[in-house]
């Protein structure tokens, strides 16, 4: 399956826009990604191993937070996993 890396994180993933992994679950896919590119880990996870709040991970068009089994949800070869940091802000401090 393909994991799509957002532009700010590509420098930690060999400057590649996508990384191919062979995985059975979302968790497995992300583990393979960070094993292959360890510098990505601190950008995706907090010190206690949770996905950072602003890091959205989508399996195809579904937020993994809402999948059955969440990170344990099964994946198949044709799936796409996208890492999308959030976009927000506003004029009020």
């Amino acid at each position: 399956m393909k994991i799509h890396i957002p532009t700010p994180l590509r420098q930690y993933a060999g400057k590649q826009p996508t990384v191919d992994v062979r995985a059975t679950t979302v968790r497995d896919a992300l583990a393979q990604l960070t094993a292959e590119h360890p510098d990505l880990k601190r950008h995706l996870y907090t010190d206690d191993g949770k996905l950072r709040a602003f890091v959205n991970v989508y399996l195809n068009d579904e937020d993994i937070r809402y999948l059955d089994g969440r990170e344990n949800a099964p994946v198949k070869e044709s799936d796409n996993l996208s890492i999308i940091p959030s976009i927000a802000g506003g004029k009020r401090n």
Partner: peptide, 22 residues
């Protein structure tokens, strides 16, 4: 994004919620 009736300068919220470095 736009700042209605407000300067074109980032707020503390704009920085806190900006994550696309580069």
């Amino acid at each position: 994004h736009s700042h209605p009736d407000h300067p074109a300068q980032p707020s503390a919220t704009d920085l806190a919620e900006a994550h696309w470095i580069g």
